[in-house]
């Protein structure tokens, strides 16, 4: 009788132990899945606002770099957050987005800056001819250099 109780007690304990281990494993799996979901599957796009960069260049020099050697310019700038200083050629609003065109070396080559939504109010205060500093992700070169996710920055707090 007493032996049976003890063995029952042990088996209960074992069952309990398995349950706890199972529970811990389940929690761990859930945590891993949610981590993968948020940081891998739903990984956020680069936050230009928070990104730090040492790549700062004038619109003319940026275009000159792409014009002289596109391959080397690609490896320097493409998919990097950069700050470009240039004179506004044109501001357009098309397909629900603002684009600022910066003057380049000549009439045909410009910097196309696709502006972030957060910038819309500030863009309305700008005029062609003004010099601005724009921070964004450089995507490459067609006959214009294309930059996405752009924001306006002050020269002081680059």
């Amino acid at each position: 009788m007493s032996f049976q109780t003890v063995s029952l007690d042990i088996s209960m304990k074992r069952k309990h132990k398995i349950q706890i281990t199972g529970g811990v494993a389940l929690v761990f799996i859930i945590m891993l899945c949610s981590y993968l979901y948020t940081n891998v599957y739903n990984k956020p796009h680069t936050d230009v606002n928070k990104a730090t960069t040492t790549l700062s260049v004038s619109s003319k020099n940026l275009l000159a770099n792409f014009n002289t050697n596109e391959v080397s310019a690609n490896s320097t700038y493409v998919e990097k957050v950069i700050i470009v200083e240039g004179k506004i050629k044109k501001i357009t609003y098309l397909n629900d987005r603002y684009t600022i065109l910066l003057h380049g070396q000549n009439e045909l080559s410009n910097i196309i800056c696709d502006m972030s939504m957060s910038q819309f109010e500030d863009i309305k205060k700008l005029n062609p001819g003004q010099t601005v500093n724009i921070k964004g992700i450089c995507k490459g070169y067609l006959m214009d250099v294309i930059m996405l996710n752009c924001i306006l920055v002050n020269k002081e707090n680059k």
Binding site: V78, K139, G140, Y141, L142, I146
Partner: peptide, 8 residues
């Protein structure tokens, strides 16, 4: 001419 990296 289309830049593939500029697809969002």
């Amino acid at each position: 001419s289309i830049l593939l990296r500029a697809f969002v």
